[in-house]
Design a protein around this nucleic acid. Structure first.
Lengths: 261, 261
DNA sequence: CCAAAAGTGTTGATAGTACACCCATGA
DNA sequence: TCATGGGTGTACTATCAACACTTTTGG
């Protein structure tokens, strides 16, 4: 940490010399519902920004890493009993002095990805969460909101949400991250809908299929299994997430602008 | 920040209820010297890890963002009078309890990139740094170290340095970041050496040249200017960094393994 | 039989690689 | 004139996008 570089050397060992920093985590929890990207939001019950929607989050406790705190909050907010398999990714840290009007808050932001039909979650499952959430104020609501109608959010959460979207979109290109949006067994059509929802573009189905299958370790076939997706049509073969984490070759999104010449 | 989600609601407004977190920044300052990637290290003068090398860094002050603190530290450590144009990029935050044996430290890591012939920097230029660095202990040394012989470092800095290298290597592919390693006017050969040093691979010169020039906004020619690079050979045309920040199309590094079939 | 969704084949354009080759300069 | 580094041309090949076509299911 470059401890020795601190110019105000005398204050290094006085833990209470400065007004302390609060360290929190903020979560952009994303999923697909009916083919559209959704984000988990909570309604604030207190000032500032009372009544507005915000990303879920909370304090990092003294014995936790930011990652541990984020996973704990994820379990509390979604009510899922097992969040250990879910993808959780650190985005960046937001530390501007005035982010929160009450005190100095440094927030580590995470993106979390949930499989397609997320169980209609229960907020603050008593079996998991601490005894009594929040003191006197109104109970905060939580709900899934379509990504496009999420804004405006409280604090600097518009920016955090945009950063989460951008990061996830970029990682779909060169990692197998898309499978984190899918249930354990999924069809290639479902996988394609993940790409289309996050990127906001339509993809050519035959070419998508070929690219996915040509990428070693991306998906592996479940022998003999098949499932009807839309009630009609040919049943689709099922696949599981493969061992690869990086895609070689990458699955690049169509470029917005034409190339020169 | 999801303030309302905190389960221990009563403690939200008691700033001193917990032992406070210290928030620091750590810097992986990278440059090219004689065609090889180097990193700026400081020698620790105090326990823990006294006598070992570490990444430079320091505390975030109450009125600073992590970015501001990182830029201040960068100026202090390099002795450069103007660091405003240098590339500074947040990597991620390291928050495991126990990173530092003395107290709870949450560290925001940054990568900084300096142009090729970095002025032989002076540590702690009095005109810039705070009056008297560090209390009683030995003065810490600082020096440029080849990337490959930098380890082992103190704390978890080996990992931070590896993360910095990986991030920079990836960003060379799809951003114009490589120009941040170059002086204001540079030759395509110099630019190519940036890629080769960071990626650790040789590139085909004619093809590299074509790709760079075919990417709109990557570089722009300085009309009529030329410079001898190695004392011998044809003088090379000079270029400046272009307006583009993202490369379209990207400049992909050669894949390690062959493709199937 | 029709609609809908899955899956296969083909083809023309493009981009990338691996070279061979020429140019300008210092010693 | 040779060594060194800059700059250009070219041909082979792998890749990719676009779209026609076949298959299998429910109504």
């Amino acid at each position: 940490m470059g401890w020795v570089q601190v110019s105000d050397g005398e204050q290094v060992y006085d833990k209470y010399a400065y007004e302390p920093f609060a360290v929190t985590v903020d979560l952009a929890v994303l999923t697909l519902r009916a083919g559209a990207l959704h984000v988990l939001l909570v309604e604030r019950g207190q000032e500032p920004y009372a009544g507005q929607w915000a990303l879920p989050g909370g304090f990092v406790r003294p014995d936790e890493s930011a990652e541990t705190a984020a996973r704990r909050e994820l379990a509390e907010e979604t009510g899922l009993s097992d969040v250990s398999g879910l993808h959780l990714e650190q985005l960046r840290t937001y530390s501007e002095p005035g982010r929160d009007p009450r005190m100095r808050v440094v927030s580590v932001a995470f993106a979390a990805l949930l499989p397609d039909p997320p169980p209609d979650f229960v907020r603050g499952d008593p079996a998991l969460a601490s005894p009594e959430p929040r003191g006197g104020s109104d109970a905060a609501q939580a709900r899934w909101t379509p990504y496009d109608s999420a804004r405006p959010l409280a604090f600097d959460h518009d920016r955090i949400l945009a950063d989460a979207h951008e990061r996830v979109g970029a990682k779909l290109e060169y990692t197998s991250l898309a499978t984190a949006f899918c249930p354990p067994e999924f069809t290639l059509g479902e996988l394609q809908r993940v790409y289309e929802a996050v990127w906001g573009t339509a993809l050519d189905r035959p070419n998508f299929r070929r690219k996915v299958l040509a990428t070693p370790g991306f998906v592996e076939a479940v022998p003999g299994a098949a499932r009807l997706t839309g009630g009609r049509g040919k049943p689709a073969a099922l696949y599981r997430a493969g061992a690869a984490t990086a895609l070689q070759p990458p699955l690049l999104r169509p470029s917005r602008e034409g190339r020169p010449t």
